[in-house]
Amino acid sequence: MKAYLFPGQGSQFIGMGKDLYKKSHLAKELFRLSDEILGFKMTSIMFEGSMDTLKKTKYTQLAIYIYSVIKTKTSNDFKPDMVAGHSLGEFSALAAINVFSFEDGLKLVNQRASIMQNVCESTHGGMAVVFGLKDSLIEDVCKQDEGIIVPSNYNSPEQLVISGEIQALKRVCLILKKIGAKKILVLPVHGAFHSPIMEPARKKFKKFINKIYFQDSKYPIYQNVTALPVTKSYDIKKNLVKQLTTPVKWKQSIKNMIAHGAISFTEIGPGNILQGLIKKISRNFT
């Protein structure tokens, strides 16, 4: 069975999508439509903007969504048996399999990115990748801290992201180094994504998402919140809202996809960040 995967923030680059724009009339029309819906030249930011602008949450999420979905819409080879998306990538996956339209997905991502950016600017949060420690050990250290700090991305057997208040993040990282973490990488983000700090964003996004029409999916999507296959529109929508404040169970999702018959994984988006994680997960799969 063929599985298709869609990345989240972190895989963006200047010039992304320009090749699609030049080669495909449909791509050109969808890029034009994106600018029209958003009310500003997102294509200019993607094609020849500055990296400082592109890496802002409100632009990054839009750029990756637009690129990923247009790539599927202009491909004759996109024939999935199952899909999954890493964080933001769930929206790309859902538009690709027509749970909602490209246009509605763009509106959802724009709203989500804007809300998250606002929360980031009004709070003091951060994220860090921890390498080489067991999940249970990292979870215990987070629980023992007095601040808000939680596991936020179960990326692979060797890699877990933690997210929370800056001071709590510093304390927990210091402890994890002392007890044997191979490496800790503080991410260049100004927000605590997939943590309780995003609760204001969750509440606002829930109100907005209820205005958008979703239909049941023809293909199972393994959502971040549960790591289980979902097809019903109500459940998909509920999980997208919950995703803002709960961890991305990526490692668990991939293991379940393999257990349910996936033998090939194709990444649809800029870069190949997810491919590296797949190799680590499948190598440790039992």
Rank of each mutant, 00 (worst) to 15 (best):
21 Y>Q: 01
100 F>E: 02
15 G>H: 03
19 D>H: 15
129 V>I: 11
101 S>V: 14
41 K>M: 14
116 M>A: 05
226 T>H: 08
27 A>Q: 01
192 A>G: 09
165 E>M: 08
264 S>L: 11
49 G>Q: 01
81 D>Q: 13
152 S>Y: 08
76 N>E: 11
263 I>L: 11
45 I>L: 04
75 S>I: 09
208 F>P: 06
66 I>Y: 00
105 G>C: 07
182 K>C: 14
204 K>P: 01
220 P>R: 11
258 I>Q: 14
223 Q>M: 10
109 V>N: 00
23 K>A: 06
249 K>E: 05
72 T>K: 12
99 V>S: 08
115 I>W: 04
71 K>H: 15
105 G>S: 15
117 Q>V: 01
96 A>Q: 03
257 M>C: 11
195 S>H: 06
86 H>A: 02
55 K>V: 00
60 T>M: 00
286 T>W: 13
21 Y>R: 03
277 L>H: 09
242 K>H: 07
5 L>R: 06
47 F>W: 07
227 A>F: 12
166 I>N: 14
239 N>G: 10
113 A>E: 00
64 I>C: 00
76 N>P: 11
139 E>K: 15
185 L>V: 11
100 F>R: 03
23 K>G: 12
92 S>D: 03
214 F>G: 02
34 S>D: 04
61 Q>I: 02
172 V>I: 10
54 L>Y: 00
144 Q>G: 08
230 V>K: 07
176 L>Y: 03
275 Q>C: 07
103 E>S: 08
52 D>T: 15
17 G>Q: 00
149 I>C: 04
114 S>L: 12
257 M>A: 06
110 N>K: 03
159 Q>W: 12
27 A>D: 01
31 F>C: 00
16 M>A: 00
46 M>Y: 07
15 G>A: 01
106 L>M: 03
206 K>I: 05
243 Q>G: 06
135 D>W: 12
125 G>C: 01
126 G>W: 01
190 H>A: 11
87 S>E: 05
274 L>A: 07
